Amino acid sequence: MRHTLVFDADDTLWENNVLFERVVADWLAWLAHPTLDHGEIRRILNDVERANIGVHGYGSASFLRSLHECFERLVQRPASDAEARDIAALGARLADHQVELIPEVAETLADLATRHDLRLMTKGQPTEQQRKIDASGLAHHFTSVHIVAEKEPTTYRELGSAHALDPGRTWMIGNSPRSDILAAREAGWRAVFIPNAWTWSLEHAEIDPDDAGVLHLAGFGELTRHF
């Protein structure tokens, strides 16, 4: 049976969040807060990021804005010009980093494309996401590519309606429980959860272990055993 397989991009096809985590680690070391530990600061940063996403969306620019705002909240004053330059320098590696494919992605997509309809749906800043898609060398495997502002149940329903996708034979494949798995399931799609150790904490959520509509796999290459 031919299925429609819709793939997440960041942390499903290539590594992404680990790059942000490295910047956060460097920022925490640079900050050297005298009283708060890294866990406490990270919780504050998460709150700042969550608020900024609602206004500015995803991507490196929104992330750097959050680092600046979190710094100013912690030190209770505006950043100096030198401090602002330091923070910008810490995040500079995010601008043109090399795309690192997750193991078995290229060969698995090539195999699946011989039997199924493959599509790509990723959220984020369009120019930034397109750069990664182009650099990955994977775009030719996909019937269509969709860069969206958010992955909510309505996003999945609209994509399904626009392309006349059969929910019973359409699978969202990704690493993020919140926006890849739970949102797709709420929209009536099936889902494949492939965990990534570096999945962003704001994407964590509980997946019902008894949900027969979710296939849990340990690695990307296992997809060829099921599709």
Rank of each mutant, 00 (worst) to 15 (best):
Glu15Asp: 01
Leu182Trp: 00
Trp27Leu: 12
Val18Gln: 08
Ile173Val: 15
Pro126Gly: 09
Arg42Leu: 12
His33Lys: 08
Gly221Pro: 01
Ala183Gly: 05
Trp189His: 11
Leu28Ser: 11
Val55Leu: 10
Trp27His: 06
Ala191His: 08
Thr199Lys: 08
His3Arg: 13
Asp11Ala: 04
Gly219Ile: 00
Gly168Thr: 07
His141Gln: 15
Val18His: 07
Pro153Tyr: 05
Thr170Phe: 04
Ser144Cys: 05
Ala79Leu: 14
Glu83Ile: 03
Ala95Val: 13
Gln76Gly: 10
Lys151Val: 13
Thr127Val: 06
Ile53Val: 12
Ser201Pro: 03
Glu104Gly: 02
Leu94Arg: 06
Ala218His: 12
Leu165Trp: 12
Ala164Ile: 01
His140Asp: 15
Lys132Glu: 03
Leu165Asn: 06
Leu138Ile: 09
Leu13Asn: 08
His33Trp: 01
Leu109Gln: 02
Gly160Pro: 12
Ala25His: 12
Tyr156Met: 08
Ser136Gln: 06
Ala82Val: 09
Leu112Ser: 04
Leu64Tyr: 00
Gly168Asp: 15
His163Tyr: 14
His38Asp: 14
Ser161Thr: 15
Trp189Tyr: 13
Asp10Ala: 04
Thr143Glu: 15
Met172Leu: 00
Asn46Cys: 05
Ser80Thr: 15
Gly213Thr: 02
Asp111Phe: 01
Val6Thr: 12
Val105Ser: 05
Ser201Asn: 03
Asn46Tyr: 07
Thr170Pro: 06
Leu64Trp: 01
Asn16Ile: 00
Gly213Leu: 00
Ala162Glu: 11
Thr155Gln: 08
Ser80Leu: 10
Ser201Gly: 01
Leu36Asn: 07
Asp111Pro: 00
Gly54Phe: 00
His204Val: 05
Asp211Tyr: 07
Leu74Phe: 09
Arg2Tyr: 00
Ala9Pro: 09
Asp117Phe: 00
Leu112Ala: 01
Leu215Ile: 15
Arg43Gln: 13
Ala218Thr: 14
Arg178Trp: 04
Asp86Glu: 14
Arg65Cys: 05
Glu15Ile: 04
Phe193Tyr: 15
Leu159Val: 10
His38Trp: 02
Lys151Asn: 12
Cys70Asp: 02
Val23Asn: 09
Met1Leu: 14
Ala106Lys: 10
Pro195Trp: 07
Asp26Gln: 15
Cys70Ala: 13
Ser201Arg: 15
Thr35Ser: 14
Phe142Trp: 04
Thr155Gly: 11
